[in-house]
Write a protein that binds this DNA or RNA. Structure first.
Length: 489
RNA sequence: CGAGAUGUAGCGCAGCCUGGUAGCGCAUCUGGUUUGGGACCAGAGGGCCGGGGGUUCGAAUCCCUCCAUCUCGACCA
């Protein structure tokens, strides 16, 4: 086989299949190639690997800072919820009943075949539900923390995991167990609670757009898409490269639904006993899936600098001559970048430089720096931006690079957002009638349609949704007389 | 839970139709030559062929039956 033949056989892209060829398979391939996560031995669950978990940690850190700025305190409640307690709110349990894992025994023992099994003598008098969300247990708990209007508002957040027994799972996008934060705030008045719902949604939009560089549409959920038990649900909807929607964060005005079922009461300013008004709000590891499907390309992941574990990866090109001095040069560069607040690392693995390069391309590190004898002798570095690809490869003085590194990262961050934003905006199609929407989706249209809100709920509308597996995504804040419709994850 | 597909080495796959001692590529390990966008040569290690049952002298291969995974639905963040 000649070198040319071999070259032709080699895939042109690091990821196969390409997005165009098969988007769902491409997604799986990126998760694997970037070493983010894998399917767990536990059905429907994922093992989040260190490089993937770092993305979550950085998102988590940014979000945690922001919610604390608005007076939210972190707390923790148990993963097991007494069945009777979660069953107290009718709409809520109707929404979750079909996907609850239930704990019924408290001990294992060997059965007749000598196999370990739940001990029949250890059956619980009351089963526990593995939390699918914590409105009920938090409500039942905090009612004892609140007596007076002076105890309000009470703003609590829990970082944790929840479990929903899903029929069909997909890494990050829909797993039986996922990580998230769930905020649960309690207020004196309905107005305060409604404002809080909006405020927390704004924080989600901020995190998604300015940290993860995922453009979102803020809006209200339609009646049929609301959280079970909510009076109003707000959402931040993102659009993936295949045109499907990803609900990326939700914030709920729960009215007095849960304060009545849990009896959360307080003595008001004029001495009356009143039920409180509550909100809840959540953002999950699903957002990592959104990050992949918003920014990834046929060479793998692209990570926005603000949440990248490694912002600049330095790859030494060693030939055996001046190896020690090249390594020193790289380490000095790393230190200089760190002193500029840049998260940098030198790839010292015993691999060929070309292999390292591809590895970091697939992992989406924002900036790659190549350093060999040539650069070292000239006091230079060769720099490639992941967002712009290999065409962006340039050689510049090392001092100049270090001085500009932070602003280059800022530029990558905003370029990734603007690119994604334009792509989303170009794929929101205004239609004046159901037929126009049908034409769009029948032609395999990629994206959302935006139509008059009054069309929602009509027979024609429902038929359209059935025909193309569509759902109303939201009633956008900026066009409150319209509804956005699309396929979704 | 419906429809379709797939389970063979760490990963990706061939072999199955037409039963006869387990193969290929990548990865791993050894040695050597190399080195600026996925190197090359030589050698080596690594498998209850998803589980269980059946047919057969003999099963990765045929039959039954579980289980798991993936894609598309329904349900959902």
């Amino acid at each position: 086989m000649t070198a040319v033949q071999k070259q032709q056989q080699k895939p042109k892209t690091a990821i196969t299949p390409t997005r165009e060829e098969n988007f769902p398979e491409w997604y799986q391939a990126v998760v694997k190639a970037a070493d983010l996560a894998e399917n767990s031995l536990t059905r429907g669950c994922m093992n989040i690997k260190p490089y993937g978990f770092a993305l979550w940690e950085n998102t988590q850190r940014a979000l945690d800072d922001k919610i604390k700025e608005v007076g939210v305190q972190n707390a923790y409640f148990p993963v097991l919820i007494p069945l009777s307690l979660i069953a107290k709110e009718a709409d809520h349990i109707d929404g979750f009943a079909t996907e609850c894992a239930v704990v019924t025994h408290h001990r294992l023992s060997k059965n007749a075949e000598g196999k370990l099994a739940p001990d029949p003598d250890s059956e619980l008098t009351e089963p526990y539900v593995v939390r699918p969300t914590s409105e009920t247990i938090i409500g039942e708990s905090v009612k004892n923390w609140i007596q007076s209007y002076r105890d309000l508002p009470l703003k609590l957040n829990q970082w944790g995991n929840v479990f929903r027994w899903e029929m069909r799972t997909r890494v990050f996008l829909r797993t039986a167990e996922f990580l998230w934060q769930e905020g649960h705030n309690v207020f004196e008045t309905a107005d305060e609670a409604r404002e809080d719902m909006k405020k927390m949604l704004d924080i989600y939009a901020d995190i998604l757009e300015n940290w993860m560089a995922i453009p979102v549409i803020k809006g209200y959920k339609t009646e049929d898409e609301k959280f079970p038990g909510a009076v109003e649900t707000m959402t931040v909807e993102a659009m993936m490269q295949d045109g499907k929607a990803l609900q990326s964060g939700t914030s709920h005005f729960l009215g007095q639904t849960f304060s009545k079922s849990a009896d959360i009461k307080f003595q008001s300013r004029d001495g009356n006993i009143e039920h409180a008004w509550t909100t809840s709000w959540g953002l999950s590891t699903r957002s990592i899936g959104g990050l992949i499907m918003t920014h990834g390309d046929d060479d793998g992941l692209k990570v926005p600098p603000k949440i990248a574990q490694i912002q600049v990866i330095i790859i030494p090109f060693l030939k055996g001559d001046n190896d020690d001095s090249i390594v020193d040069y790289c380490k000095t560069l790393k230190q200089n970048l760190k002193s500029q607040g840049v998260r940098a690392d030198v790839d010292m693995r015993e691999l060929r430089a070309g292999d390292k390069t591809w590895d970091w391309v697939k992992k989406g590190v924002p900036i790659r720096v190549e350093v060999g004898g040539r650069e070292m002798d000239a006091g230079q570095v060769t720099v490639t931006r992941r967002d712009l690809g290999k065409e962006s490869k340039t050689t510049m003085s090392v001092d100049e690079f270090v001085a500009q590194a932070q602003s280059t990262l800022d530029d990558i961050q905003s370029n990734m957002f603007e690119t994604a934003k334009k792509s989303v905006m170009d794929r929101i199609h205004d239609v004046d009638a159901i037929d126009a929407a049908r034409t769009f989706f029948a032609g395999n249209g990629n994206g959302f349609v935006r139509m008059d809100k009054t069309l929602w709920g009509t027979n024609e509308f429902n038929a359209l949704c059935d025909e193309f597996s569509l759902s109303p995504r939201c009633i956008p804040l900026d066009t409150p007389d319209k509804v956005i419709v699309g396929k979704s994850y």
